[in-house]
Nucleic acid binder design. Sequence first.
DNA 1: TGCGCCCCTCTACGGCACGTAGTACTACCC
DNA 2: GGGTAGTACTACGTGCCGTAGAGGGGCGCA
Lengths: 107, 107
Amino acid sequence: MDILWAQSAPLTAREVGRLIQDRDLAPTTVMTVLDRLSRKGFLNRTRDGRAWRYEPAESRDAYVTELMLEALDLTGDRSAALTRFAQAVSGSEAEILRRALMELEEQ
Amino acid sequence: MDILWAQSAPLTAREVGRLIQDRDLAPTTVMTVLDRLSRKGFLNRTRDGRAWRYEPAESRDAYVTELMLEALDLTGDRSAALTRFAQAVSGSEAEILRRALMELEEQ
DNA sequence: TGCGCCCCTCTACGGCACGTAGTACTACCC
DNA sequence: GGGTAGTACTACGTGCCGTAGAGGGGCGCA
């Protein structure tokens, strides 16, 4: 669903329907979905003539980060969960994290 | 729902019902919920006489980690998402992450 | 100036998960 | 044997999601 959306970065209107021909959906279906997504704050819409132009409210990475923080909130012991998470990511990803944290520290 | 569960660590049976008196649920309600959770793999059950004894399949932290990794899978650019995540956590949490990664490196 | 097309909004319907619970069966204890 | 406790099976309301149809209103072209 929003996968289709997060995929193509630029903003668009009901040409979204044309971008997903694989499942041949009724035009109204696409509209309804976009409408519901914008209603829930995942998408922003702006007028363009009589049509709407939709745009992701957040970047995909921001959304993912939000989800991760949300998951983190579920635990009683954030420190333990973070430690475990650090151990769970792959070596190369640990390296990426390490670098990002390093840069943070420098500021 | 599983909040109640993840809370009390030890394994138990339908005394769970007694542990949550605040919302006075019918005993069968608690049973159904536990049953459905075990069916979905969140809980393990073992026989104890004619009763079942339920036990979290995973620790809460393991579950949280799993959720976080799952969120991470949603992105196309894991590296960017991880970097962003590192920047999003609080300072003290960044420190925890840093330490966990340090220990990893030593091994 | 009227007809058709495009896009919108509103409404709907089936499916599924979830929270809640009732009923019916069974085994144990006194 | 009857009360109690525990189980399995079934059910109902609600809310979300994917899908879509019906109807209204501009805009452009003949």
